[in-house]
Computed example of a mutant assay.
Amino acid sequence: MPLRVGYVREHFCSPLLQYEAEDKGKTFTLVECPSASCAALTDPLIAGIAKGSQAYKLVGSYVNSPLKWAVITGHNSPYEQISDLQGTTLGISRYGSGSHTMAYVMALQQGWATDQLKFGVNDDIRGLLDSVNDGSTSAFMWEWFTTKPFADANECRFIGAVPTPWPSWLIAAHPERASLAELKTFLSSLTLYVREFQKPEARAGPSVEFIKKTFGYPEEDVKAWLQTVEYTRDCTEIHSEVLSRTLSVLQQAGAVTLQDGEKIDPSEFVNRNVATLIIPEDEKHSATP
Protein backbone atom coordinates (compact mmCIF):
# COMPACT_ATOMS: atom_id res chain seq x y z
CA MET A 1 0.00 0.00 0.00
CA PRO A 2 1.41 3.45 -0.90
CA LEU A 3 2.36 5.86 1.86
CA ARG A 4 -0.46 8.14 3.02
CA VAL A 5 1.05 11.59 3.39
CA GLY A 6 -0.89 14.25 5.30
CA TYR A 7 -0.55 17.85 4.20
CA VAL A 8 -2.16 21.28 4.30
CA ARG A 9 -3.04 22.67 0.88
CA GLU A 10 -0.87 25.78 1.01
CA HIS A 11 1.79 27.25 -1.26
CA PHE A 12 4.52 25.78 0.97
CA CYS A 13 3.48 22.34 -0.27
CA SER A 14 4.12 23.19 -3.94
CA PRO A 15 7.14 20.84 -4.34
CA LEU A 16 5.12 18.07 -2.68
CA LEU A 17 2.22 18.66 -5.09
CA GLN A 18 4.60 18.60 -8.05
CA TYR A 19 6.00 15.30 -6.78
CA GLU A 20 2.49 13.88 -6.44
CA ALA A 21 1.54 14.93 -9.98
CA GLU A 22 4.42 12.96 -11.45
CA ASP A 23 4.22 10.03 -9.04
CA LYS A 24 0.52 9.44 -9.88
CA GLY A 25 -0.09 7.43 -6.71
CA LYS A 26 2.55 4.79 -7.33
CA THR A 27 4.48 5.37 -4.10
CA PHE A 28 2.30 7.75 -2.04
CA THR A 29 -1.07 9.46 -1.85
CA LEU A 30 -1.86 12.83 -0.29
CA VAL A 31 -4.45 13.22 2.46
CA GLU A 32 -5.57 16.79 3.15
CA CYS A 33 -5.45 17.60 6.85
CA PRO A 34 -6.63 21.14 7.67
CA SER A 35 -5.32 21.08 11.24
CA ALA A 36 -2.31 18.76 11.15
CA SER A 37 -0.10 17.01 8.65
CA CYS A 38 2.97 14.96 7.94
CA ALA A 39 4.67 18.05 6.58
CA ALA A 40 3.81 20.34 9.48
CA LEU A 41 4.86 23.39 11.46
CA THR A 42 7.98 22.89 13.55
CA ASP A 43 6.74 24.15 16.91
CA PRO A 44 3.56 22.04 17.31
CA LEU A 45 5.48 18.92 16.25
CA ILE A 46 8.31 19.46 18.73
CA ALA A 47 5.96 20.59 21.50
CA GLY A 48 3.82 17.48 21.03
CA ILE A 49 6.76 15.13 21.47
CA ALA A 50 8.09 17.14 24.42
CA LYS A 51 4.70 16.70 26.09
CA GLY A 52 4.89 12.94 25.68
CA SER A 53 3.14 12.17 22.39
CA GLN A 54 4.07 8.77 20.97
CA ALA A 55 2.00 9.27 17.81
CA TYR A 56 4.92 10.35 15.64
CA LYS A 57 8.65 10.98 15.38
CA LEU A 58 10.46 13.55 13.28
CA VAL A 59 11.82 12.01 10.08
CA GLY A 60 12.98 14.97 8.00
CA SER A 61 13.17 18.69 7.26
CA TYR A 62 11.19 20.71 4.74
CA VAL A 63 11.39 24.52 5.02
CA ASN A 64 14.41 26.16 6.69
CA SER A 65 13.31 29.79 6.59
CA PRO A 66 11.10 31.27 9.35
CA LEU A 67 7.35 31.45 8.89
CA LYS A 68 6.04 35.01 8.69
CA TRP A 69 2.93 35.22 10.88
CA ALA A 70 0.61 38.14 10.24
CA VAL A 71 -1.16 39.70 13.23
CA ILE A 72 -4.70 40.07 11.94
CA THR A 73 -7.66 42.04 13.27
CA GLY A 74 -11.16 42.87 12.09
CA HIS A 75 -11.81 45.24 9.24
CA ASN A 76 -13.52 47.77 11.53
CA SER A 77 -11.87 46.88 14.84
CA PRO A 78 -10.29 49.58 17.06
CA TYR A 79 -6.85 47.92 17.08
CA GLU A 80 -4.12 49.63 15.08
CA GLN A 81 -0.89 48.03 16.32
CA ILE A 82 0.28 44.98 18.24
CA SER A 83 0.66 46.88 21.51
CA ASP A 84 -3.09 47.62 21.45
CA LEU A 85 -3.79 43.90 21.94
CA GLN A 86 -2.43 43.61 25.47
CA GLY A 87 -5.06 42.20 27.84
CA THR A 88 -7.49 41.28 25.05
CA THR A 89 -8.75 37.85 23.94
CA LEU A 90 -6.69 36.47 21.06
CA GLY A 91 -8.14 34.03 18.55
CA ILE A 92 -6.47 30.64 18.00
CA SER A 93 -7.41 27.61 15.93
CA ARG A 94 -6.85 25.22 18.86
CA TYR A 95 -4.64 24.88 21.91
CA GLY A 96 -1.18 23.66 20.96
CA SER A 97 -1.47 24.96 17.38
CA GLY A 98 0.94 27.35 15.71
CA SER A 99 -1.47 30.24 16.20
CA HIS A 100 -1.49 29.46 19.92
CA THR A 101 2.30 29.10 20.27
CA MET A 102 3.03 32.23 18.25
CA ALA A 103 0.73 34.27 20.49
CA TYR A 104 3.18 33.47 23.29
CA VAL A 105 6.14 34.40 21.10
CA MET A 106 4.47 37.74 20.33
CA ALA A 107 3.78 38.30 24.04
CA LEU A 108 7.44 37.65 24.91
CA GLN A 109 8.54 40.15 22.27
CA GLN A 110 6.12 42.73 23.66
CA GLY A 111 7.09 42.12 27.29
CA TRP A 112 3.61 40.94 28.30
CA ALA A 113 2.99 38.47 31.13
CA THR A 114 2.36 35.20 29.29
CA ASP A 115 0.31 33.76 32.18
CA GLN A 116 -2.28 36.49 31.61
CA LEU A 117 -2.96 35.72 27.95
CA LYS A 118 -6.60 34.96 27.08
CA PHE A 119 -7.72 32.88 24.10
CA GLY A 120 -10.81 32.14 22.07
CA VAL A 121 -10.76 28.86 20.10
CA ASN A 122 -12.24 29.24 16.61
CA ASP A 123 -11.13 26.09 14.76
CA ASP A 124 -10.17 27.36 11.31
CA ILE A 125 -9.44 30.44 9.23
CA ARG A 126 -13.12 31.20 8.61
CA GLY A 127 -13.95 30.95 12.31
CA LEU A 128 -11.00 33.19 13.15
CA LEU A 129 -12.00 35.82 10.59
CA ASP A 130 -15.55 35.81 11.90
CA SER A 131 -14.33 36.23 15.48
CA VAL A 132 -12.23 39.33 14.82
CA ASN A 133 -15.08 40.90 12.87
CA ASP A 134 -17.80 40.17 15.42
CA GLY A 135 -15.54 41.38 18.26
CA SER A 136 -15.37 38.11 20.21
CA THR A 137 -11.58 38.19 19.73
CA SER A 138 -9.25 41.10 19.12
CA ALA A 139 -6.82 39.47 16.68
CA PHE A 140 -5.32 36.20 15.55
CA MET A 141 -2.08 35.08 13.89
CA TRP A 142 -1.78 33.18 10.59
CA GLU A 143 0.77 32.82 7.82
CA TRP A 144 1.10 36.15 5.99
CA PHE A 145 0.65 35.16 2.35
CA THR A 146 -2.12 32.64 3.05
CA THR A 147 -4.27 35.32 4.65
CA LYS A 148 -3.29 38.29 2.45
CA PRO A 149 -6.16 37.63 -0.02
CA PHE A 150 -8.62 38.13 2.87
CA ALA A 151 -6.97 41.44 3.72
CA ASP A 152 -7.04 42.46 0.04
CA ALA A 153 -10.78 41.71 0.04
CA ASN A 154 -11.28 43.94 3.13
CA GLU A 155 -12.32 41.00 5.32
CA CYS A 156 -9.57 41.83 7.83
CA ARG A 157 -6.54 44.05 8.45
CA PHE A 158 -2.88 43.30 9.16
CA ILE A 159 -1.45 45.30 12.07
CA GLY A 160 1.95 43.64 12.33
CA ALA A 161 4.01 40.53 11.73
CA VAL A 162 5.98 38.10 13.90
CA PRO A 163 8.43 35.62 12.28
CA THR A 164 9.06 32.28 13.93
CA PRO A 165 12.39 32.06 15.80
CA TRP A 166 12.93 28.62 14.22
CA PRO A 167 12.84 26.97 10.77
CA SER A 168 9.19 26.68 9.88
CA TRP A 169 8.44 23.16 8.60
CA LEU A 170 9.54 19.64 9.53
CA ILE A 171 8.31 16.20 8.46
CA ALA A 172 6.96 13.62 10.91
CA ALA A 173 5.71 10.07 10.62
CA HIS A 174 4.01 7.46 12.78
CA PRO A 175 6.72 5.14 14.11
CA GLU A 176 4.97 1.96 12.91
CA ARG A 177 2.52 2.74 10.09
CA ALA A 178 5.11 3.36 7.38
CA SER A 179 8.02 1.16 6.44
CA LEU A 180 11.50 2.61 6.81
CA ALA A 181 12.29 1.86 3.19
CA GLU A 182 9.18 3.68 1.94
CA LEU A 183 9.92 6.73 4.09
CA LYS A 184 13.53 6.91 2.94
CA THR A 185 12.49 6.66 -0.70
CA PHE A 186 9.82 9.33 -0.24
CA LEU A 187 12.18 11.77 1.50
CA SER A 188 15.00 11.24 -0.99
CA SER A 189 12.65 11.86 -3.92
CA LEU A 190 11.04 14.87 -2.24
CA THR A 191 14.53 16.35 -1.85
CA LEU A 192 14.92 16.36 -5.64
CA TYR A 193 11.63 18.22 -6.14
CA VAL A 194 12.47 20.74 -3.41
CA ARG A 195 15.85 21.46 -4.98
CA GLU A 196 14.31 21.90 -8.43
CA PHE A 197 11.52 24.15 -7.13
CA GLN A 198 13.89 26.64 -5.52
CA LYS A 199 16.49 26.91 -8.27
CA PRO A 200 16.92 30.56 -9.35
CA GLU A 201 15.65 29.80 -12.85
CA ALA A 202 12.56 28.06 -11.39
CA ARG A 203 11.84 30.93 -9.00
CA ALA A 204 11.99 33.29 -11.97
CA GLY A 205 9.28 31.48 -13.91
CA PRO A 206 8.01 27.90 -13.50
CA SER A 207 7.58 28.00 -9.71
CA VAL A 208 5.72 31.31 -9.97
CA GLU A 209 3.39 29.91 -12.61
CA PHE A 210 2.74 26.71 -10.64
CA ILE A 211 1.65 28.62 -7.52
CA LYS A 212 -0.48 31.06 -9.51
CA LYS A 213 -2.26 28.20 -11.29
CA THR A 214 -2.63 25.99 -8.22
CA PHE A 215 -3.59 28.56 -5.57
CA GLY A 216 -4.76 31.59 -7.55
CA TYR A 217 -2.44 34.05 -5.83
CA PRO A 218 -1.51 37.31 -7.59
CA GLU A 219 1.86 37.17 -9.32
CA GLU A 220 3.33 39.97 -7.21
CA ASP A 221 2.46 38.09 -4.00
CA VAL A 222 3.97 34.87 -5.30
CA LYS A 223 7.20 36.57 -6.30
CA ALA A 224 7.42 38.33 -2.93
CA TRP A 225 6.95 35.03 -1.09
CA LEU A 226 9.52 33.21 -3.22
CA GLN A 227 12.08 35.85 -2.25
CA THR A 228 11.62 34.97 1.42
CA VAL A 229 11.28 31.18 1.48
CA GLU A 230 14.20 28.76 1.75
CA TYR A 231 13.62 25.04 1.55
CA THR A 232 16.00 22.47 2.96
CA ARG A 233 18.76 21.12 0.75
CA ASP A 234 18.17 17.61 2.09
CA CYS A 235 14.80 16.41 3.41
CA THR A 236 16.47 13.42 5.10
CA GLU A 237 18.45 15.58 7.56
CA ILE A 238 17.45 17.21 10.84
CA HIS A 239 19.78 19.60 12.67
CA SER A 240 19.88 19.20 16.44
CA GLU A 241 20.08 22.95 16.99
CA VAL A 242 16.57 23.25 15.50
CA LEU A 243 15.32 21.09 18.36
CA SER A 244 17.24 22.95 21.07
CA ARG A 245 16.39 26.42 19.74
CA THR A 246 12.69 25.66 19.38
CA LEU A 247 12.45 24.02 22.80
CA SER A 248 14.20 26.98 24.41
CA VAL A 249 11.62 29.44 23.04
CA LEU A 250 8.71 27.10 23.81
CA GLN A 251 9.94 26.90 27.41
CA GLN A 252 10.13 30.69 27.67
CA ALA A 253 6.62 30.91 26.28
CA GLY A 254 5.34 28.36 28.78
CA ALA A 255 4.20 26.03 25.99
CA VAL A 256 6.60 23.29 27.16
CA THR A 257 7.74 22.61 30.72
CA LEU A 258 11.02 20.84 31.50
CA GLN A 259 12.33 19.99 34.93
CA ASP A 260 15.36 21.90 36.22
CA GLY A 261 18.48 20.34 34.78
CA GLU A 262 16.51 18.09 32.43
CA LYS A 263 18.31 17.55 29.15
CA ILE A 264 16.66 16.74 25.87
CA ASP A 265 17.75 13.56 24.11
CA PRO A 266 17.40 14.17 20.34
CA SER A 267 16.64 10.48 19.85
CA GLU A 268 13.35 11.08 21.72
CA PHE A 269 12.29 13.39 18.89
CA VAL A 270 13.94 11.94 15.78
CA ASN A 271 13.53 8.52 14.17
CA ARG A 272 17.21 7.99 13.47
CA ASN A 273 16.41 4.87 11.47
CA VAL A 274 15.02 7.24 8.84
CA ALA A 275 16.59 10.69 9.32
CA THR A 276 20.19 11.73 9.73
CA LEU A 277 20.58 13.84 12.87
CA ILE A 278 23.22 16.52 12.36
CA ILE A 279 24.94 17.40 15.64
CA PRO A 280 27.54 20.23 15.80
CA GLU A 281 31.01 19.26 16.96
CA ASP A 282 30.75 21.27 20.19
CA GLU A 283 27.53 19.43 21.13
CA LYS A 284 29.17 16.07 20.40
CA HIS A 285 32.06 16.90 22.73
CA SER A 286 29.81 18.21 25.50
CA ALA A 287 27.78 15.02 25.35
CA THR A 288 30.87 12.84 25.81
CA PRO A 289 31.21 11.52 29.41
Rank of each mutant, 00 (worst) to 15 (best):
T147Q: 09
G120I: 06
L128Q: 13
P165Q: 02
V194S: 06
S131M: 09
E176W: 00
R126I: 02
F186R: 03
R177I: 04
F186M: 07
D115L: 06
N122C: 11
F150V: 01
N133W: 08
T146F: 13
D124A: 08
E143M: 01
W142M: 12
T164V: 04
F145C: 10
T164F: 14
S138I: 14
F145S: 12
G135I: 03
E143P: 00
S131N: 03
A161Y: 15
T185P: 05
L128F: 06
G120A: 08
K148S: 08
S131L: 06
V162T: 05
A181T: 15
L128S: 12
I171V: 10
T147E: 08
S179M: 09
N154S: 11
P163Y: 04
S168P: 01
G160Y: 03
G135W: 00
S188P: 01
A178V: 03
N133M: 06
A151V: 13
L192S: 15
D134A: 10
E176G: 00
L190A: 05
V121T: 10
V162C: 09
D123W: 14
S131W: 00
S188W: 11
A139K: 01
P175T: 00
L183N: 05
S136Y: 02
V121M: 03
L180Y: 14
I171M: 03
F158Q: 13
M141N: 12
W142P: 04
R177N: 14
S168T: 10
R177K: 15
K148V: 07
V132K: 04
N122P: 08
A151Q: 13
W142F: 11
G127K: 08
R177S: 12
T137D: 04
A151W: 07
L117F: 00
R126S: 04
W169K: 11
W142L: 13
L117N: 00
K148Q: 12
D123H: 14
V132C: 06
E182F: 01
D130I: 10
R177P: 11
L183T: 04
V132H: 02
F186G: 11
E143F: 03
D134W: 01
F119M: 01
A173I: 05
A178R: 12
I159D: 12
G135K: 02
S136D: 11
P165A: 06
A161S: 15
L129I: 06
P167T: 10
W142C: 09
V121C: 01
S131E: 07
L170E: 07
G127A: 12
W142I: 07
P149D: 05
D123C: 13
R126W: 02
A153M: 03
A139S: 09
T137G: 08
G160E: 01
T146P: 07
A139E: 05
T185C: 03
A153G: 00
D152G: 02
S188Q: 10
T191N: 08
I125Q: 15
G135D: 09
M141Y: 10
W169T: 15
